[in-house]
Amino acid sequence: MLRIINLQKKFTVENGADNHILNGLNLTVEDGEFVTILGNNGAGKSTLFNLISGAVLPNDGYIYLDEKDITFMPEHKRSQFIGRVFQSPMRGTAPNLTVAENLALAYGRQNRKNLNWALTKPLKAIFREKLAEADMGLEDKLDSKIKNLSGGQCQVVALIMCTIKPPELILLDEHTAALDPKTAEDVMAFTQRVVKKDQLTALMITHHLEDAIAYGNRLIMMDRGVVAHEFTGDEKKNITPEELRTLYHLKES
């Protein structure tokens, strides 16, 4: 369970004025929940993810994961149990290493035995099986470099890297936004399968209103650093993209 209490973050801009990004955000996500997050630019979605993953530290407030206070835990320790997939396919993978090597890095992240071989036959067999699940022809590309893959394949590898050892929480940061519509659909479908299979707790930022409604079991809309609207259950199923769109417009006026 992820529990965020009164989270505040401000950045000091050049003239000394404070730019308040998060203003006391409260959010509780139960185990196995899949939450989609909407919000206009500057609402604080990415900052929220940066705070959860530890890339930046909050000015006030606390973050608990399974009753453990992780507010100030260093990023590389947190990433043992928090997975994150970024918008840019190149961001979550090492382009000049092979698919297998990238997966080996991810596989070892909870328990890195430093001077053991990074790649062994049994490990490669596990990777091949995982890649086959994605159904994108990746199982034959274990030894090709990431930079020779397409953007969609790259994102799938990044997603598998995050989930190969099921994390306690996975953050999806517009991970299909840079892909063409067909590939984006495939990657979303695969995401859905993985989340369901491993009963993962997931947060997903998206600007795609249809996706936000279709996937997950809870939808939140952020505005000016707080959760402004929330839809669950039938309420979420029945909402239309138009209704959501008007919520965006409300904010601008």
Partner: peptide, 26 residues
């Protein structure tokens, strides 16, 4: 460079941001 440790060094040279989010002490 075939061990986990060596692979981590290679990954850091290749994509430092990825290394951080894969729980490596860069």
């Amino acid at each position: 460079f075939k061990t986990n440790c060596g692979l981590c060094i290679r990954a850091i040279g290749d994509n430092e941001m990825m290394a951080r989010s894969s729980s490596m002490s860069v």
